[in-house]
């Protein structure tokens, strides 16, 4: 199932172990930089010659200068801080709810009967479509933004943790019985560690949607944060600021993904050593 997916190099993004890139492209890594650099260069030339109007897309050089300005003026750090805080609070709340419900549903039939049908029903809802309701219920302050992130985060974590718990090898549970482990110890030594790889898959998915949900939520009447910065820039046709905002979003997304990978490498040593053999 997902057990082998985790450590398979899917993307070529910065990775703590350079080993994987080396193995895939022995000595030819620089060749992969040619086409992106050509693209940026072409973009710069098109901007300088006036082929690409600034009101549609700013030149790369302008974007870089704007990024420096925004950092120096404190606008960008403040915006990042506000957005990060929203993601952090929303993610924490959503993770607690998602994993908590998965434990309730995964560890007992009664819990499954109580929780799972509701989660499966809610999962089918397009959660971005809930924004109008969220505005009616929670106003236009921080609450709807944080809650949207929390909602988006909880489902991937719920589904993966639940599947992880149920996917734990029944043969190991039998071993636990023959060596006399009780139910609590069974959960602690067998079930939870066994569900961890799948939970970490859920964690990565949920961090991805957390940023997505934040971007959507911040389009709605924000007065601070990256989304606000982008919307404000639109009013003044500042395409350079918009692109800086987008780049920061993707950088933050990659950063959180790298953090989870780091966590995976630490938590799943038992599997990594096997795969590395």
């Amino acid at each position: 199932m997902s057990v082998l997916e985790l450590d398979t190099p899917v993307r070529a993004e910065p990775h703590p172990g350079a080993r994987i890139r080396r193995r895939r492209l022995p000595g030819k890594a620089w060749q992969r930089w040619i086409s992106p650099l050509v693209l940026v260069l072409a973009w710069q030339i098109a901007s300088t010659t006036g082929l690409l109007p600034t009101r549609l897309l700013a030149a790369p050089s302008t974007i870089a200068a704007t990024a420096v300005d925004l950092v120096q003026a404190g606008t960008l750090p403040t915006a990042i801080a506000v957005s990060l805080q929203r993601v952090l609070i929303g993610f924490t709340a959503g993770a607690i709810a998602g994993v908590g419900l998965a434990l309730v549903a995964g560890l007992s039939r009664k819990g499954e009967n109580a929780v799972d049908p509701i989660m499966q029903m809610l999962r089918a809802l397009p959660f971005f479509g809930l924004i109008p309701l969220f505005i009616l219920w929670f106003g236009i302050g921080e609450a709807p933004k944080v809650l949207l992130v929390a909602l988006a985060v909880s489902f991937p974590l719920y589904l993966n943790t639940f599947a992880g718990i149920r996917g734990v090898d029944g043969k190991l549970a039998e071993v636990a019985r023959t060596v006399g482990l009780g139910r609590t110890q069974l959960i602690r030594h067998i079930v939870l560690p066994g569900a961890l790889p799948q939970t970490l898959v859920g964690l990565r998915q949920s961090l991805g949607v957390a940023w997505l949900a934040l971007i959507v939520a911040e389009q709605v009447n924000a007065n601070a944060g990256l989304g606000y910065m982008i919307n404000d820039a639109r009013e003044f046709l500042r395409t350079d600021v918009i692109v800086v905002g987008l780049l920061v979003y993707s950088a933050l997304g990659l950063l959180t993904d790298a953090l989870v990978r780091l966590l995976e490498r630490r938590a799943l040593t038992w599997r990594r050593e096997f795969l590395a053999r």
């Binding site: 043969k171 190991l172 071993v175 023959t178 030594h189 067998i190 066994g194 038992w270």
Partner: peptide, 14 residues
């Protein structure tokens, strides 16, 4: 009673 199974059934994360 103790059991040794056909597959060793070691807990992989221990």
């Amino acid at each position: 009673v103790a059991v040794a199974f056909q597959e060793p059934r070691l807990v992989p994360w221990k």
